[in-house]
């Protein structure tokens, strides 16, 4: 299908449009259900009343100041992770090469943690710096006559483990109460999000989302091979740099509002590509899947009785089996 505007034209596959719409509808339904879900029982009419500002103060507070920011943060962070994952998977032509597997998320968390300990704030700049430094270090260490994805993945996993240990070390330097809060954040959590988180993540997305979608055109060429990308007249090295910068910024954004949320970046791309098919990078569907997975994980975490479970525990429970399955598939195909 072709969308034509004056001076502009875009090419879509029919399947991508149908799949994208279906995912968007699913997300809208999940969003609606998640507003109702929670420890404090509310009926649909009460919820509608809070939006019209006609409910009592407690109900108003629960829906507008507690549940809604949490949901909108989950969707924003999930979309950021899903998009970043799909970008890396496409660029490096390997489903294992995602920021959460190869240490970029861990780097962003460490940076954010360090910024918080040292200055008491600057979470986003800290995450951004941590993510970029890790990306640069892992790429430099993996570089050997060009970029070999499997080297990058192995070195990235090493970096991820090292950085987690580093984060643990940093935790011993702070008081126990803060450390307990930080520990939850390091797993990835959406507890006690407020409107400032929502504003941060969605403001970031307004800039990064269009850039990421613009990059889909070169990325779908880079998905073939380096030689073909160059042969088609695309500037390979600048594009790689731009894709990495954009994806790391997305990860930093997600990390600074929700913690690293393990495996969201990793599972979104493969799920989206399986739905859309046709060898497309499926970036918009990957963002939607990321949002959906995060929202569902947070709903599961919220509905857990007694303990306030961090959402990261649930995303890890979804992601880890997918990781094992992909490893097995790739091992069998010999494409690891």
């Amino acid at each position: 299908m072709i969308l034509r505007l004056p001076y502009l034209s875009f090419l879509f596959s029919r399947r991508a449009i149908v799949a994208g719409s279906a995912l968007a509808i699913l997300l809208a339904i999940t969003l609606t259900v998640s507003v109702k879900l929670g420890a404090f029982p509310l009926s649909w009419s009460q919820i509608i009343a809070t939006f019209a500002r006609r409910a009592d103060d407690v109900q108003q507070m629960i829906v507008l100041d507690h549940r809604l920011p949490r949901i909108l943060t989950a969707i924003g962070a999930g979309a950021a992770f899903g998009l970043a994952g799909a970008m890396f998977q496409t660029m490096l032509r390997n489903p294992l090469a995602t920021p959460d597997v190869i240490g970029f998320s861990a780097g962003a968390s460490c940076g954010a943690l360090l910024a918080m300990i040292l200055t008491g704030g600057f979470i986003l700049p800290g995450a951004l710096a941590g993510g970029l430094v890790t990306a640069a270090a892992v790429t430099a260490l993996a570089w050997h006559n060009g970029l070999q994805p499997y080297r990058l993945i192995l070195i990235g996993i090493g970096a991820s483990l090292t950085l987690s240990a580093g984060a643990d070390l940093l935790m011993t330097k702070i008081d126990a109460l803060t450390a307990a809060e930080m520990a939850k954040w390091l797993i990835g959590t959406l507890n006690t999000r407020d409107w400032s988180d929502v504003r941060l993540v969605w403001l970031g997305l307004t800039f990064l989302f269009p850039l990421a979608l613009w990059l889909q055109f070169p990325l779908s060429r880079m998905a073939m091979s380096d030689d073909i990308t160059t042969g088609l007249g695309l500037p390979l090295s600048p594009l790689r740099l731009l894709v990495t910068a954009c994806a790391v910024a997305l990860v930093a954004l997600g990390v600074s509002v929700a913690g690293p949320l393990p495996f969201v970046a990793f599972v979104s791309g493969p799920i989206a590509r399986r739905i859309v098919r046709g060898g497309s990078p499926a970036m918009l569907p990957a963002a939607t899947v990321g949002a959906l997975v995060t929202l569902l994980a947070d709903m599961a975490a919220r509905s857990f009785p007694i303990v306030q479970l961090p959402a990261g525990v649930c995303t890890a429970m979804i992601g880890a089996p997918v990781l094992m399955w992909l490893l097995l598939v790739q091992f069998r195909k010999g494409t690891l």
Binding site: T90, R93, A223, M224, S225, D227, I228, T230, G231, L232, G233, L234, P235, R273, R277, G278, G279, S280
Partner: peptide
């Protein structure tokens, strides 16, 4: 590179494409 690509095409050895 783009202007070269309008005059010269290369098919590398054993090219690969994403599944599907």
């Amino acid at each position: 590179s783009r202007s070269v690509a309008r005059r010269l095409a290369i098919l590398p050895q054993m090219p690969t494409a994403p599944e599907g």
